[in-house]
């Protein structure tokens, strides 16, 4: 089976601006895939290339093995898109909007009507079915975009910031719904600025910046790329931070504890303890705190912060052993 999405050297230029700069991404069928990146990174542009709203300048893009230009009909038939911006037909009540959309996808009117009702119920705005789009609240508008994406029963569901400006309850509803869809076999591509959302939902995430891919990994793997903090309580309490080996990217004393920044807390901790004991300290407590995905994200996309540390961390995680994955974190 070909991947759900496969792009190679994908480029899009707006004059001098490179919205996509050789983007290479593969999303496997059935995956829940997250696309993270700061504003203007090129996420929406990427999505629009797939559905034909943006013409690529160069490179290749395929959806389920079909070229987005040569086989545009098959590509568009497979995709259900809930876009970032509202783009809904304002002349008709929303139920009819969905019937029309299903119709464009070749679904006969009777069946289209059933599907429209089903989709509206699924996102919880069935009682608004005779309203026009303009009369819906912001959150309901978001729900409608999702319903419109679902009404054609897509194999690939693309959600471009579906939870922007949405209340907590709705966000949870949406999460539940898309998880359910993914479990039923729908491939999901999600962009979001809520890192927690990506972490909770996605099998893998890609971080893009300035039209380029910076990293692709599971949220777990990504977090491992960030620096961890090993925090130890020592007896006696040192007056100044003791000197440590090159594994320590920095250390600080706070509240009688020593915080040491290292690449991989669980791997470095034994060595750190040995060194401290050799210096004559007794370790009374130890905690390892992982970088949050958000911190990793900021670290990876922040322009001034491209340290050597990060690239070595990347290399390491590429060859990482599976034994390491199961290690407990937090209090040891």
């Amino acid at each position: 089976m070909p991947p759900a999405i496969e792009t190679a050297d994908l480029r899009k230029e707006y004059g001098d601006l490179r919205a996509l700069d050789g983007l290479e991404l593969t999303v496997e069928e059935g995956e829940f895939f997250g696309l993270l990146g700061p504003n203007g990174a090129g996420k929406t542009t990427f999505i629009n290339v797939l559905v034909g709203l943006v013409r690529k300048t160069g490179g290749e893009a395929r959806v389920f093995g079909n070229d987005v230009e040569a086989d545009y009909r098959r590509v568009r038939d497979a995709i259900g898109l809930a876009p970032q911006e509202f783009n809904v037909d304002r002349f008709f009540p929303i139920r009819e909007v969905l019937i029309h959309k299903a119709g464009y996808h070749g679904i006969p009117t009777d069946e289209a009507a059933e599907r429209a009702d089903e989709a509206l119920k699924r996102v919880g705005i069935y009682d608004k079915r005779e309203e026009r789009f303009d009369w819906l609240s912001g959150g309901m508008k978001r729900r409608l975009l999702l319903a419109r994406a679902l009404v054609t029963d897509p194999d690939l569901l693309i959600l471009d910031e579906p939870t922007a400006g949405v209340d907590v309850q709705l966000r949870r509803d949406l999460w539940e719904l898309v998880t359910e869809l993914n479990e039923e076999g729908t491939t999901v591509l999600l962009t979001t600025h809520y890192i927690e959302e990506a972490e909770r939902l996605c099998d893998r995430v890609a971080i893009v910046n300035e039209g380029r891919k910076i990293a692709v990994a599971t949220p777990e793997e990504l977090k491992r790329r960030g620096t961890d903090t090993v925090s130890v309580a020592l007896e006696p309490t040192p007056a100044t931070a003791p000197a440590l080996g090159p594994y320590a990217h920095g250390s600080a004393l706070s509240g009688g504890r020593l915080d040491v920044r290292v690449d991989d807390g669980s791997r470095i901790a034994p060595q750190l303890l040995r060194d401290l004991e050799a210096d004559g300290y007794e370790i009374t407590d130890l905690e390892i705190s992982r970088t949050s995905l958000e911190e990793v994200f900021v670290e990876l996309t922040g322009r001034d912060d491209r340290t050597v540390t990060r690239s070595t961390a990347e290399e390491r995680s590429n060859e990482e052993s599976t034994a390491e994955r199961g290690q407990p974190e937090g209090v040891v």
Partner: peptide, 14 residues
């Protein structure tokens, strides 16, 4: 103008 022509453009209609 209101971009809802996207509903048509992103459909598999030739």
């Amino acid at each position: 103008w209101n971009e809802y022509i996207h509903e048509t453009l992103t459909s598999p209609l030739s």
